[in-house]
Design a protein around this nucleic acid. Sequence first.
DNA 1: AACGTGACGGTTGAC
DNA 2: CCGTCAACCGTCACG
Length: 320
Amino acid sequence: MRPLPNAIRLRIVELAQLGIRPCDISRQLRVSHGCVSKILARYNETGSILPGAIGGSKPRVTTPTVVKHIRTYKQRDPGIFAWEIRDRLLADGVCDKFNLPSVSSISRILRNKIGNLSQQSQYESGKQAPHPPPQPTLPYNHLYSYPTSKVPTPPGMPTLPGHMAMHRIWPSSHSVTDILGIRSITEQQISDSPSFSSAKLEEWSAINRTNFPAASSPLVNGMDKPHLEPEAKYTQTPSGLPTVNSYVTAPSIPPYHPPTQVSPYMGYSATTSAYVTGATWQPASGSALSPHSCDIAAPLAFKSMTANRDAIHPVAASAL
DNA sequence: AACGTGACGGTTGAC
DNA sequence: CCGTCAACCGTCACG
């Protein structure tokens, strides 16, 4: 089971916001009502229409940096308890509460990786400063910090109001694949209102391919580069951070973008919000997107708002 | 009939 | 390269 294409997810939310009953959405889009329910519930809770990250294992919190710090602590105070190390990791900013190893993990590190520390100092020789600057480890578990109710606000990410919740999302790679593989969406039979789904998604796709090698070519909808999809999956830097900065350059940083945020979330958050907010839907080339493009974006970006509900939406017309 | 929810089997990707 | 594991997915069935 692969996640539904984002276009369909978007339409589910969109139709729901237009007052269409979930059962009707289910029938129209040929998606089980359970799925509609789940997507809507998730959207209401998180503001995100995007699927979660599938696959992979939880990134380890006991990174080499953490191990190094633990070793340092142990060397400086051989009698230190694991829980004290844990506190120090937190206090020194080596870890935050989201990637702080458990006491048992620290104990295991002490036992397995560090062992008898009193004789083991070669690791700290030479250039290794006795007091390495507290270099916060990167939020390794960012992939798992997307906004389900299970996971609190990610590190460095303030709790966001509802309409900002999108910024907490780090979607799955396959989501990116879905997004970038918009081709598959446009090939699907969901485009009974092509003025919305295909056009906007193609636009979105094009925008988000901006920095791809062939992006400067008149790439309209990505149809000419279907083979781009494998590479379109986000890649990860050695630090585990996705290299999504290419997305950030989309001419669509939301106006409410937290200005000081520098986190892996932001890279995608721009994209994410672009996906659901009006900003990105603005035709980059000035060409005609469907005139209602912002009607959708607004209620999606500000899900609590019910404005513009009186504006008859072409999708609604096609949906009914 | 509509809808929320948990079980289930499938898919995915890091390790 | 392959298996394991743990995450999510959508569907289904039940209440």
